[in-house]
């Protein structure tokens, strides 16, 4: 059973890599950009899913941690010349201006700093329940944003950073995404993963069983912040410009949308939804432009796209609360049960 699953998984990865390679060769830059953006959203949605879906903590702080990761990684990889060009209002602190690190290191550093921020935010805030936690994390996200806007000498304030080196290639982002998916799969199947779910399902019972609930929450929150930081960094290295305004609640909302659509607590759900929503976001861009359907002419209704998305989110949450996958995963056993794979000789499997 296990060998079969491993072989199938390996095969699936190989096929996916092939598809990616073909796409890279044949699809234009625009299409590839969307595809790669989905990879980044995979990372981001999994980071949110870890706290929301698997640990049951309603955190809205995503954008703040993304910002930390993005800024750290950008500042550590930009060359001194590029930095000087950016920081024309107020010069960057000299030690940072001279520092340039290789991408991989900067990426990890970005994640690390985000994780640190997560720890600092998490320890006080994770004692709160449900809605208060949401508002507190949202508050911290906004505080981070305001701080970034005001620390002119460190972040270039409202001007943001331009000409960030474009390190987010197809293989980089999808490689990271694959790593994160694998990590999440291992994590949730481990004993730690079971602790997470215990905390999610019934905190008091978990505590009574000897689970250190607070420590589990903080660890989960910190890991999630790390992933968010990495995602934010990848984003920065893909669109090459970042500024505090882009890390708003709207960004968190987009990621929340993906997680809810895919199913709060399903890794495969998040992956599928990330790709679907990113593609859909682009596809629906026409809604914001002048429309010329034969019976209906408009002169460009910016905001219509978000109207559709908000309506979608509400529809999903009201009508099909569990999203696409609920908290189930796509497993090989699932395919077997559906009759798409030959049944194994060992009989019914879980």
């Amino acid at each position: 059973m296990k060998t079969r699953n491993t072989v199938l998984t390996g095969l699936a990865i190989a096929i996916f890599a092939l598809v990616l390679w073909l796409a890279d060769k044949n699809l234009g830059g625009y299409a590839m950009r969307i595809l790669n953006l989905s990879a980044i959203y995979v990372v981001l949605s999994l980071s949110l899913n870890l706290v929301n879906g698997f640990t049951g903590l309603f955190s809205l702080g995503c954008a703040g941690f993304m910002a930390v990761g993005a800024y750290v990684s950008a500042l550590l990889t930009m060359s001194p010349e590029v930095k000087e060009m950016n920081f024309f209002l107020e010069p960057l602190a000299p030690w940072l201006a001279r520092l340039t690190l290789p991408f991989a290191l900067a990426l990890v550093a970005g994640g690390f700093c985000a994780a640190l921020a997560g720890l600092v935010v998490g320890i006080p805030v994770l004692r709160l329940k449900d809605d208060y936690l949401a508002i507190a994390t949202l508050g911290f996200s906004e505080i981070i944003r305001v701080v970034i806007t005001n620390l002119q000498g460190l972040t270039n304030g409202a001007q943001g950073l331009k000409n960030i080196p474009k390190f987010s290639t197809t293989w980089t982002v999808w490689g990271v995404a694959a790593l994160v998916v694998a990590f999440m799969a291992l994590l949730t199947r481990s004993s730690y993963g079971r602790q997470l779910k215990a905390v999610r399902d019934d905190e008091i019972a978990a505590e009574a069983m000897g689970v250190n609930v607070f420590r589990v929450k903080v660890t989960s929150f910190t890991i999630s912040s790390f992933l968010a930081g990495v995602g934010g960094a990848l984003l920065g290295h893909m669109i090459t410009t970042i500024d505090p305004k882009m890390f708003s609640f709207m960004l968190t909302f987009n990621i929340l949308l993906i997680v809810v659509l895919g199913g709060n607590g399903s890794i495969t759900g998040s992956v599928i939804a990330s790709i679907l929503v990113t593609v859909l976001m682009e596809a629906l861009r026409f809604l914001d432009e002048p429309l010329n359907l034969f019976f209906f002419k408009t002169n460009g209704l910016p905001g219509l796209r978000m109207v559709v998305f908000s309506a979608m989110l509400m529809a999903v949450v009201i009508l099909r609360q569990r999203g696409l996958m609920g908290d189930q995963e796509l497993t090989w056993s699932g395919f077997e049960k559906a009759g798409l794979l030959p049944r194994s000789k060992k009989g019914a499997s879980k």
Binding site: L301, P302, G303, L304, M306, V307, F309, S310, A311, L313
Partner: peptide, 13 residues
């Protein structure tokens, strides 16, 4: 949250 974004963007539209 969805309702909030919906109303805001409907307002923009």
């Amino acid at each position: 949250i969805g309702a909030s974004f919906l109303i805001e963007n409907l307002g923009v539209v």
